[in-house]
Design a protein around this nucleic acid. Structure first.
Lengths: 318, 318
DNA sequence: AGCAACGATGAACGCGCTTACATTTGCACG
DNA sequence: CGTGCAAATGTAAGCGCGTTCATCGTTGCT
């Protein structure tokens, strides 16, 4: 319709600078009139670049990862990429399945939250030769690039605060999961370094919600546990503990201090405001995308392991 | 390596029943040994079915849509589909861009939250001839299939409760947005039918958060507004109003009733438990996927417009 | 033994693009 | 006016599969 070859139309979309203004205008006219949208599937096959990146996360509901995914998606959209979302389940039970599904599309990058432990999976990932970014953790044996922080250090920092404040009977309420487990280890280690015994620990399975926190604290309380500080694996749980404690006539932080994890969107605005550990999930997403785009441009990433750190945010609750 | 033609390998993956057990075993051996993953991009081009569905939503952070996306992704993964996530911004400012990006991949279905208003966009969507599902709304002029509920009815139901309870000075705190606007209209209409004047309204732009709710209520209070009930466009905001009211020494619901929207995960567990409108976001996602799969099997969807309804959940706060 | 019918498999084409390479055109320069 | 070079465009060969159609044994039956 524009009187040009297919190759020229391809250039119109992918390298507009190479066209004369006149043909570009002619093609644009035809494109508009026909409502033509290039088939990126065919383009991907031909160019061997899918412009698709896979993002795997345990869940997006009630999740600290939502911020990372949001940031990633926004950034990638700006660069002309689409993101495939793979939800691997609260305990990563579907990583294998999701990974297979995703690799079949030959993504230009894979962003993981946490590490892949299964050696076979790792093998398959590496074999694909696509950029891989592990996030929200600092794995000892990284596959490729990493944007995360040390859960061990987080646990240790919280433990140190417990020591400093002179709290004697800490209770850990935590979801099962590798990363929460590592924070727990760091916490315990901080206590041990100060000659303290291991803390009491209550773990539960599945998604971290306010209700879970409430019930966990109620259960501990009914069982006679009388902590002076509760350390939680998420701000959701922490707020549940506060709600339950308040319902039982306890004053937070007077009778009971509560510390969360994540510094979620609501954490500063509840009563009392949550003391927690801030992780900048958006920054993680942005940095991950930045790595991906560098690789896509063929550049070498000089410093492929980034520790975004964390911040102990002291507010009213503890 | 298995001593068979490509055609047979293709059948191994797509129609295993058509192979003899013996060749299937031979192919399986080769596949395992080589770590071969079929290239779905090429397959999609050849078969004209991408096995990709696009999900567009304003945001996933702090969002009632997260549940729908979660359910969709889970269901679709089970059926061998992947989902492309498109985030269109809190006020749908990126629908156009996202839609283009997404249509280029020739998805086997598009799931929208809310409607597309721009006629040009609608045109392009329809032209693609892919199944389209509008969710979280009951548009007057549906494009294709719909899984939603009436925001008008929600507003009306809340308004009726305000009447029934005899509250005289309602204040609406609402994010800007089409759907929130429709609920507001329904609410106002319910008041009007009972001879009541229009309620006071405070709107804000952007994401609905606890902090926004707090600040909005603080602002109204400082301005001298003294409502006896606050109706919010989200449970987040509602909880923010409660927190702010409590900080100012008000008793909820004694001095002030608060009603939210969404019945989010935490809503039953805060103090006081939130009176709100429950929408089953998971059910919306599941139903949408079910429609999509029916279409994929070539079946006609008998009843393509589904009203999943809502439920006014009365708890302590109002 | 001969034939039809059927299940299993292979050969070959094409899906809609990208891209290396070839070709054409326009223009500056000697 | 011819030469050389760069910019603009066309040509054609795939990219890795799915799919149709033909082929080849087999089996069951007469």
């Amino acid at each position: 319709m524009a009187g040009v070859s297919g190759a020229t139309v391809s250039r119109f979309f992918n390298a507009p600078g190479k066209l004369s203004a006149e043909t570009a205008a002619r093609i644009k006219g035809a494109v508009d009139e026909l409502g033509y949208t290039p088939n990126l599937v065919a383009g991907g096959l031909a160019s061997n670049r899918s412009r698709l990146v896979a993002a795997l996360a345990p869940t997006i509901e009630q999740s600290i990862f939502a911020a990372t995914i949001q940031a990633m998606t926004d950034e990638l959209a700006g660069a002309g990429y689409s993101v495939m979302l793979g939800l691997t389940g609260a305990r990563d039970e579907h990583v294998g399945q999701q990974l297979s599904a995703v690799l079949g599309r030959r993504p230009d990058g894979v962003i993981l939250t946490g590490s892949i432990t299964d050696p076979i999976m790792r093998q398959r990932l590496v074999a694909q030769n696509t950029p891989i970014i592990e996030t929200w953790d600092l794995p000892a044996d990284p596959i490729d690039m990493v944007v995360g922080f040390s859960h061990e250090a987080v646990g240790h920092a919280v433990g140190s605060r417990v020591i400093d404040k002179g709290w004697k009977k800490p209770l850990l309420i935590s979801a099962t999961g590798t990363r929460a487990g590592i924070r727990q280890a760091g916490f315990t280690e901080a206590l041990r370094q100060n000659g303290r015994p291991n803390p009491e620990v209550l773990t539960f399975d599945g998604v971290t919600t306010v209700g879970r926190g409430r019930r966990a604290f109620a259960q501990a309380w009914e069982a006679g546990t009388r902590p002076d500080v509760v350390v939680c694996s998420s701000d959701w749980t922490a707020y549940g503990v506060i709600a339950e404690a308040q319902s039982r006539g306890l004053d937070v932080p007077g009778d009971l201090a509560v510390i969360g994890f994540g510094d979620l969107d609501f954490s500063a605005d509840v009563n009392p405001a949550l003391t927690t550990v801030r992780i900048d999930g958006h920054a993680i997403g942005r940095q991950a995308v930045s790595f991906l785009l560098q690789r896509a441009r063929g550049e070498r990433v000089a410093e492929p392991i980034v520790d975004v750190g964390f911040e102990l945010v002291v507010r009213k609750s503890g």
